[in-house]
Design a protein around this nucleic acid. Structure first.
Length: 861
RNA sequence: GGGCGCUUAGCUCAGGUGGCUAGAGCGCUUCCCUUACAAGGAAGAAGUCGGGGGUUCGAGUCCCUCAGCGCCCACCA
């Protein structure tokens, strides 16, 4: 084995071997209980980012452990077609060749997208492999697959016939750049400083007028009314009158509607039913005409009179100027308000009246809320349930049609003769009226419509496949909180309705990985870190371990390269620990399972008892999805106890060929490899081959070491060395190796054979870290007796005094606190007995230590 | 306008149901190339747990309040 661990070399070859051996398939543990996670499908357009790396690292830890625990574990990979995003990418490519999709036509454009997908869609799956994620590629799915497409179609048709999907003219969010509708959740609101423009609409039949205010002046071109609150005394007299719309000259009525907030602005609001959701509703209630004044690109149309042809933002200025010229512009004041932007292209979205397909969400919401409320579906951490409820309770119908080409085309046909809509799986031969002039809807479905079916459509639903029967409902869903509304909520709603069962049991929500500066990682800010760069420099294992350890249960975490570096150093440490073990036990000398010694010596019993405790703790944490806790504990145990202490203790035993030590060392290191395997699969697999050399660690069994009784004095690793000293002294044995007498427990150190020599040299009793001639005591104990004797310098008594004084001061304070507590009758009465007992014990310990230190201190006078 | 979260060591963060002397990584100080590993080892310094109030025998932890920061939701024209 090389003395240093080289991640690149180690990570190069394992993935294909695992895959070839079928380890990632649930059939590996055919008889085991099923366990299934479906990957949150990344965009085919995308490449892996830090968010995926974290998300998928968590899932891999879960799935690899379950696999090792004997579950028929399935992690199903897939990608989603990302309608708008993909279309934009391909269109951009075409534009470079001077082509537009319109020129190409629908069919050839779709062909282009598929070709593009074939070319670059593999990038993300390649990255998943590079990260070592153990997905079952034999079951890989894509939302535009035949099977999934059939499922999508069936769902649309069924929901339509259940009256849960309808077509309607509504105000939707329109992106003038992408020229498509988008759903409410695809709109990002940002507070912006705009203008509140006050306009006076003159009365038609009398002098004077009514003042209205708007932030989008150009929309006045489409006004068909003015609304006031019915109870507003200021306007009671004018209700029913008409005003003349400036610039256009249209006569429009003043109506009374409770939706108007009398305290805002002038209390009178202009009504533009075609360009504002509230206005649309007001318009509906009062029979006001909805006049669309813009085309799909946000340019004013013929209804805008002389402003026709202007872009909406130019029109805004032009309208303002024209109003001023007409003398009806009362004032313009700065006004901060929230403006919606397209999530993808950041264009300001336009509320736009158009005919779209909607999913009626109200009937789906009840069961979706209920499933979470009664604990059938669990959010981890729990507090996300509140967000989920809040969000679910305020839903409007979901606009699912998109005016793009790449996606699942809506299976609806319009009759050219009678206008009847036929929704069916296949193109109907004729309309009900007998006409054969049928035209399919041009629109496609929102990508999230198909993603919402992922937990079951990927398993073969609506067919009653074996996979569906076995792995549905899924066990766990892991995702960031940013897509609870987009995805999680929809899977729950659709899953419950369509399959009659919950889509999954546990929803594990994690935080976002942020850039080092604490901001969101984004391309435009240039502060993103490409996981693959990190993998190249530090290895996938290091990145995975770093993310898992840093990922607090739900908090956003700024990404820091130092974590990854620390994680890589751990890999090196592990590598060397195994190298040490292998040089003593030989290659492949350890059994893949079991093999725990029956009659270990004291040190072995100590480390084995710790191993048992740590496994229990790690299991408990992992069962609760507390990944950073689990691996923090494991990391500290491995490095701080096993590597730093047990390996040192084992050295001289190994030289003397001590059998229990060989066995113990082997099983402890082997179990550490297993415990770490879910996070750092590559290096543990490589090391497994050296240590065990049988099968794959990826297919090995999760450890469950038996409980061992640690000998007295060995309870914590801090006591180990002192304990060994005491133990050997009691049995009349000599210390074996200088390292074994590293001073941790001063009391034990006093008994050591070299103490008199130290005392004669230094003039006081040794403590860990005691200063001797500019050197410290650790040098002595970790070197040799010769090194000790060669010390002939001046002892730094002053430093030693200061050290002791400080320690004594602290102890006195601690003791005072303890005494005060114990002297308090209420504490003794009301605190639990065990707490009081512990306090007593502590008090005694403190007194003893204090006495000892005081003696040492007086020695120095 | 609602809702949620954060504020703990120089930096980035942990600290389930209140209870030993508040932890980790990185950084810092002192010492040590030691035969698995200097990408290492030993020892150590460093925190009025954002401010104020309350509940309690006991509060980083629970409640109220103030301040600062962040996120989500929302049809104030």
């Amino acid at each position: 084995m090389d003395p240093a661990y080289d991640p690149q070399q180690v990570e190069a070859h394992w993935y294909s071997r695992w895959e070839k051996a079928g380890i990632f398939r649930p059939e590996l543990n055919a008889g085991g209980p099923p366990f299934c996670i479906v990957i949150p499908p990344p965009n085919v357009t995308g490449s892996l980012h830090m968010g995926h790396a974290l998300d998928q690292s968590i899932q891999d830890v879960i799935i690899r452990r379950k696999r090792m625990q004997g579950y028929a574990a399935l992690w199903l990979p897939g990608t989603d077609h990302a309608g708008i995003a993909t279309q934009i990418v391909v269109e951009r490519e075409l534009a470079r060749e001077g082509l537009t999709r319109e020129e190409l036509g629908r069919e050839r454009f779709i062909e282009q997208v598929w070709m593009w997908k074939a070319r670059s869609g593999g990038a993300i799956t390649e990255q998943i492999r590079r990260m070592g994620f153990s997905t079952d590629w034999s079951r890989e799915r894509f939302t535009m697959d035949d099977g999934l497409s059939e499922a999508v179609k069936k769902v649309f048709v069924d929901l339509y016939h259940q009256d849960l999907i309808y077509r309607g003219k509504r105000i939707i969010n329109w992106c003038p750049r992408d020229r498509t509708a988008i759903s409410d959740v695809e709109v990002e609101h940002e507070d912006e400083l705009g203008e509140l423009v006050h306009i006076r609409y003159p009365f038609e039949k009398s002098s004077g007028g009514i003042e209205v205010a708007t932030t989008r002046a150009e929309t006045m071109l489409g006004d068909t009314g003015v609304a006031v609150h019915p109870d507003d005394p200021r306007y009671r007299a004018v209700i029913g009158k008409t005003v003349r719309l400036p610039l256009i000259g249209r006569e429009i009525p003043i109506v009374a509607d409770a939706a108007v907030d009398p305290t805002f602005g002038t209390g009178a609001v202009k009504v533009t039913p075609a360009h504002d959701p509230t206005d649309f509703e007001i318009g509906q209630r009062h029979g006001l005409e909805a006049i669309v004044i813009m085309d799909e690109g946000g340019v004013i149309n013929a209804n805008g009179g002389r402003f026709s042809g202007l872009d909406r933002m130019d029109a805004r200025r032009a309208v303002k100027d024209a109003l001023a010229a007409e003398g009806v512009l009362v004032k313009v004041e700065p006004h901060e308000h929230s403006v919606g932007h397209c999530e993808r292209c950041h264009t300001v979205v336009e509320p736009y009246l158009s005919e779209q397909w909607f999913v009626r969400v109200a009937p789906l919401v009840g069961p979706a809320i209920e499933a979470v409320r009664r604990g059938d579906i669990r959010f981890i951490p729990e507090r996300w349930e509140k967000t989920y409820f809040h969000w679910m309770e305020n839903l409007r119908d979901w606009n699912v049609s998109r005016q793009i080409w790449w996606g699942h085309r809506i299976p609806a046909w319009y009759c050219g003769a009678c206008g009847e809509i036929t929704v069916a799986m296949e193109a109907p031969p004729a309309c009900r009226c007998g006409s054969t002039s049928l035209r399919q809807d041009e629109d496609v479905l929102d990508t999230w419509f198909s993603s919402g079916l992922f937990p079951f459509s990927t398993l073969g639903w609506p067919e009653d496949t074996e996979d569906y029967r076995t792995f549905y409902p899924n066990s766990v869903l892991v995702t960031g909180y940013d897509i609870i509304s987009f995805w999680v909520a929809r899977m729950i709603k659709l899953g419950l309705h369509l399959t009659g069962r919950k889509p999954f049991s546990d929803v594990v929500i994690h935080g976002m990985i942020r850039a080092e500066d604490g901001r969101k990682m984004s391309k435009s800010l240039g502060n993103g870190v490409d996981p693959l760069d990190v993998v190249r420099d530090y290895g996938a294992d290091a990145l995975r371990l770093a993310l898992i350890q840093a990922a607090a249960p739900n908090q956003d975490v700024p990404f820091q390269t130092e974590w990854v570096d620390a994680a890589r150093r751990f890999g090196n440490k592990l590598w060397n620990a195994v190298r040490f073990t292998v040089t003593h036990l030989g290659e492949g000398g350890v059994a893949p399972d079991g093999g725990y010694p029956d009659d270990p010596g004291p040190e072995a019993a100590w480390v084995l008892s710790r191993l048992h405790a740590v496994v229990a703790e790690v299991d408990a944490s992992l069962d609760e999805y507390r990944f950073s806790d689990a691996y923090g504990t494991l990391y500290n145990f491995a490095w701080g106890e096993v590597f730093d202490w047990y390996l040192e203790l084992a050295k001289s035993h190994l030289r003397s060929g001590d059998a229990p030590t060989r066995t113990t060392l082997g099983v402890v290191i082997r179990d550490l490899l297993k415990l770490f395997h879910p996070v750092i699969p590559f290096v543990t697999e490589e090391l497994w081959q050296h240590l065990v050399g049988d099968g794959f660690i990826a297919a090995s069994r999760w450890p469950s070491p038996p409980a061992y009784q640690a000998p007295a004095g060995f309870e914590t690793f801090r006591d180990v060395v002192g304990g060994v000293r005491r133990f050997r002294a009691e049995h009349g044995l000599a210390p074996r190796h200088p390292l074994e007498v590293t001073i941790v427990d001063p009391e034990a150190a006093m008994e050591a054979w070299w103490v008199p020599q130290f005392k004669s040299l230094a003039g006081f009793e040794p403590r860990a870290g005691s200063s001797v001639a500019g050197g410290t005591f650790s040098r002595v104990v970790s070197g040799s007796l010769e090194a000790l004797i060669s010390f002939e310098g001046v002892v730094d008594v002053a430093a030693e005094r200061m050290r002791l004084d400080r320690a004594i001061t602290e102890l006195v304070a601690a003791q005072a606190r303890t005494e005060a507590k114990l002297a308090n009758p209420q504490f003794v009465e009301r605190a639990p007995a065990e707490v009081v007992a512990k306090e007593r014990e502590r008090s005694a310990e403190l007194s003893a230590t204090l006495a000892k230190l005081t003696t040492q201190r007086s020695d120095l006078e």
